[in-house]
Design a protein around this nucleic acid. Structure first.
Lengths: 254, 254
DNA sequence: AAGTGGTCTAGACCACTGG
DNA sequence: CAGTGGTCTAGACCACTTT
């Protein structure tokens, strides 16, 4: 037997004992979280074998169906892969899927920078026709329009203009992060579509971004949706082409 | 009862009878395909209710677990959404998730245009250090390097340079489409990461794309991977900023 | 209260991988 | 060959929505 590919001895009991600690989640999620934590903590290296589904079920005192749901979850996140007839293994390349729905603040944090911003415009106004169309509003609704220069480690990186229905956030208590405010009011989007194209900085863009007019910018229009499919945010941004890359993941089977 | 939200009468028998036709796939996939086909054919509109899981199981003569797996599949693709305690419904906005892994030819087809190309360079050569790094090759391996101007409906849209290990395709039989060749040799990637940023056209770019030097371009570097995680393709492209948008989907939970 | 999806069980058989 | 994941069953109870 090739030792490297076999489940680490004692792994089974580690998983089961750690699992007791988890909260009120369903059993299959607890198991997925427990195994996921062991992987993220580096205790299970890439390529390491998980215990077999039957062993996990026996040790955890649950059915194999439940174990399968737990491993399904880990496969969905891409941190475990299955091989029919062979076993389940920790995925080798934990290439962070960077196409995750986050706001500017979190995006910068993930890139190891600190986000700040300078507000250019902040108003509550009647939705204009374009907002009505993109957000699916009624013509009498009001929106918060927030235009900011976004800075990364103190350097201007983007001009961002966000529009959200005024009813979706508690404006007085809102801080720097729009997404924190959306989350606080239970309106955090779960999905977004981005349209990305290349443009060149206008004189105004250049002044705000500290670049030369005619320099390249990445223009991004983001529409974000709640889990019920309702649009909750439209943001248009212009990023400095020389300082920002957008990373997208594509998959074969949608 | 609100008629619009109830399952269409006769729907159950439609699903079950159509299901018999499907091939050797597992039962849950057959059911998912059958329902998915009804939705794509427009027979089930957005918001329409599916029959309950118990009804589907009874009508199809299978267990509810199997029905749930079928509906899981449809939910994963985003064409059905569940509401606990209420039912399962056809998703309202079948906003095609456009961030699907396809080559230029298929991308243009989906946008309703015809793709052609003009080959600038086509050679089999030793992998250079950059290829070795990005594709994980050994220094003695050879690669196919294919540089083309890509045209959409006859107009230049992009300059694309692809590198694949020579061992991964049958070069003599290869046609216009690199992805067709990869598929034919069983090396179709299932996943890719794209790095996208904005740039401006050099004089050479401009000449090939038929634009002015200094006009905006979208520079895309794509690395594609097989299901076993091995890198199979690196393509760098420059798209005309005025004629191409990249569309990406972001989700909250990776 | 009735009906829905969400979780879970304790089995079973099949298809595949590996020694 | 033994062991693995892949599919499937016939139930059960819980949590939630709707009427």
């Amino acid at each position: 037997m090739s030792i490297g590919a076999d489940p680490e001895p004692g792994l089974l009991s580690r998983i089961v004992s750690d699992m007791q600690a988890a909260g009120g989640d369903p059993l299959y999620l607890k198991m997925a979280q427990t195994i996921g934590a062991l992987i993220e903590a580096g205790e299970l290296r890439g390529g390491a074998a998980l215990p077999s589904e039957r062993d996990l079920a026996k040790a955890a005192g649950c059915s194999r169906v439940t174990v399968r749901k737990a491993i399904d979850e880990l496969c969905r996140k891409g941190i475990v892969s299955r091989r029919h007839g062979a076993g389940s293994f920790v995925a080798k390349q934990i290439d962070q899927p960077l196409s995750v729905l986050v706001g500017f603040t979190e995006d910068m944090k993930r890139r190891g920078a600190v986000a700040t911003s300078r507000v250019l415009e902040r108003e509550v106004a009647l939705a204009d026709p374009s907002d009505i169309l993109k957000l699916g509003l009624s013509p009498t609704e009001t929106v918060l329009r927030l235009t900011r220069v976004r800075l990364s480690d103190g350097e201007p990186l983007a001009i961002e203009s966000a529009v959200v229905p005024a009813s979706a956030i508690d404006i007085p208590s809102m801080g720097e992060s729009l997404y924190d405010a959306l989350r606080a009011s239970g309106n955090m989007p779960v999905r977004a579509l981005q349209r990305i194209h290349a443009g060149i900085a206008t004189a105004e863009d250049a002044g705000l971004l500290g670049t030369a007019p005619g320099s390249p910018v990445l223009r991004i229009e983001r529409r974000s949706f709640l889990s019920n499919g309702r649009a909750i945010e439209v943001t248009t941004s212009s990023y400095r082409g020389d300082r920002y890359d957008f990373i997208a993941e594509l998959t074969l089977d949608p």
